Amino acid sequence: MLLTAYRTPLRPPLCHDLRMRSRAGTAARTLVRGLRLVFAVTAVAAIASIPMGADVAAGFSYVNFFSYFTIQSNVLAVGVLLAGAVWDPTSDRWQLVRGAVTTYLVITAVVYAVLLSDIDVMLDDRWSNSILHQVIPLVLVLDWLLVPPRRPIGLVRAPTWLVYPLVYASYSLIRGAWIGWYPYPFLDPWDKGYPRLMLDLVVLGAVMAVLAFGVAAIGDLSGRLRRRDTDDVRDVRPLGP
């Protein structure tokens, strides 16, 4: 009875604290989903503004337009942001998709900053250029950090995210040899030859692998810190194959 007397006054504050945490969590999720929708619409506007402002009579090609990695990766980002805003999936498979698309946007930002910032890649509009190469990549990274996967991705799964860039490079080289047009200078073999091109692609692939591992690692670290702060002791095994 003595223990009961001491414990009883602690229950109402504890329940109140749990209710406050629940309300704060709901408000935070609502805010995140709203921001996802805003940035998805922003990305769509940036993508659509390019062909709308292009001179079709001067030879603008929609096939070439959608052959840019920047455009493809941002289209994927729009899909992830919209899905997160409307449905907010939490399955393990969806976390892998989020991690993959986040990696592609990081690749877009890094490759642009290092190799393409002073080169004409059909993005003359500064607003669209900034949105697609800087803002949306940053948004995807922040979304990955603030809403990390509940279970660790693990470094074993990260290399699977590189399948799409490999397919993209193969598509660009095959199509480029066929029509005589390459979306990016570093994919064009005519000036430097195929041996140098292959070497450059190996180096670029290694950089992409580091970026993929980095995205997986920061997602796992953020998830670990989040679970520690919330005392979440659910299954934290790495995602299975």
Rank of each mutant, 00 (worst) to 15 (best):
L2W: 10
T4Y: 12
R7W: 09
L10R: 13
L14V: 09
L14M: 10
M20V: 14
A24M: 11
G25A: 13
T26A: 14
T26W: 07
V32S: 10
G34Y: 09
L35F: 14
R36V: 00
L37K: 01
F39D: 06
T42N: 07
A43K: 02
A46I: 06
A46M: 05
A46K: 08
I50V: 15
I50C: 01
I50S: 02
P51Y: 02
M52E: 07
D55Q: 00
F60D: 05
S61I: 07
F65A: 06
T70A: 05
Q72F: 04
S73T: 12
S73H: 04
L76E: 07
A77K: 06
G79P: 09
V80I: 14
V80R: 01
V86G: 04
W87A: 14
Q95A: 15
Q95D: 15
G99Q: 06
T103H: 08
V110W: 04
A113H: 08
L116T: 09
D120T: 03
L123G: 02
R126M: 10
S128W: 04
I131Y: 03
Q134V: 11
V135S: 06
V135T: 14
P137W: 07
D143Y: 02
L145I: 10
V147T: 15
P149A: 08
P152F: 04
R157T: 05
V163E: 01
V163W: 09
S170L: 15
S172Q: 12
R175H: 12
A177Q: 11
W181M: 10
Y184S: 04
Y184V: 07
P185G: 08
W190V: 15
V203F: 10
A206I: 15
A206D: 06
V207E: 05
V210L: 15
A212V: 03
A217K: 01
G219Q: 00
D220A: 03
L225R: 10
R227G: 03
T230N: 09
T230E: 09
R234C: 03
R234K: 02
V236K: 02
V236A: 14
G240K: 09
